[in-house]
Amino acid sequence: MATDTKGSSTAEPGPGRRLPGGVPPVVRRVFRDNGALGALLALVAVLALLSPDFLTTRNLMNVGAQAAVVAVLAFGVTFVIVSAGIDLSVGSVAALSAMVLAWTATSQGLPVWLAVLCALVTGLACGLVNGVLVAHGRLPSFIATLAMLSVARGLGLVISQGSPIAFPDPLAFLGRNLGDWLPVPVLVMLAMAAVAAVVLNLTYSGRAMYAIGGNEEAARLSGIRVSRQKLVVYGLSGVFAAVAGIVLASRLVSAQPQAAFGYELDAIAACVIGGASLSGGVGRASGTLIGALILAVLRNGLNLLNVSAFWQQVAIGAVIALAALLDTLRRRT
């Protein structure tokens, strides 16, 4: 993954603080920059000991496929959180985008490539509306995206008349495996992780996100056109949501109006577990990926251990609090 960002500068580089000597510096840096990576590895180790079924290619790939939708949503949300905003609408926007795809392709007979474009444009449009409300309407992002959460969900229901629409066959491969073992959603997740990392680390807009999230007024007085960059931020989040929606619908083989319900909270949790700060200026694509994987591994492991779905919710909530707590402590020392 690309070079350092603010995540590394806020964490003190304490020499060999958590790791014994003799560890290559590259590995040490990866751990220092991604506090959650240790937690993920510990979780994997524990589950491998407890359940013989956990550490199999088949199961791990299954975990990856399950993580994919939340991860892709979370990359989009990472842009927003880094710029000190919040996006609650991504679950609804994902469902709406998938619905637009299925509806234009199945009911309206559009070619599939055009239907995919329509879905992406839908995501972009929702994001831009969020961006306009936040940047020009001066609404708090919480309120603007809460409104979009409702609007997008409602539009999906309107288009579908409340029932699922079949997903076009040519896209079914998106939900399947490549070479019998590699799920396509995992590939999509990794590709989007790379895109998010490049955007955050190497593009003007990405660096502007860190500046805006760190101190919006200082960014404005340094010549960054904050309003325009916020449109980019929320627009990107919308496009990532559309991609996540398409992946989800292909896994379900249909676009469902209630799909991805509540996923925005998982996406935010993934960002926070991965070390992003809700007060802005801090966050990494790699961290968010790890955060999404932690959530998926935990769900999968608890299933394998036959923990009831009710207790699973409790466990996941506890992990979110613990991760955030550990990160706070790590920054303080």
Binding site: S9, Y210, N215, A218, I224
Partner: peptide, 21 residues
């Protein structure tokens, strides 16, 4: 502190803020 600098960002990033574009 409130307007001149992004305090959480590094010295290098602050120095490069205006020339980012």
């Amino acid at each position: 502190k409130g307007q001149g600098l992004v305090l959480g960002a590094s010295v290098g990033e602050n120095l490069g803020l205006v020339t980012l574009r």
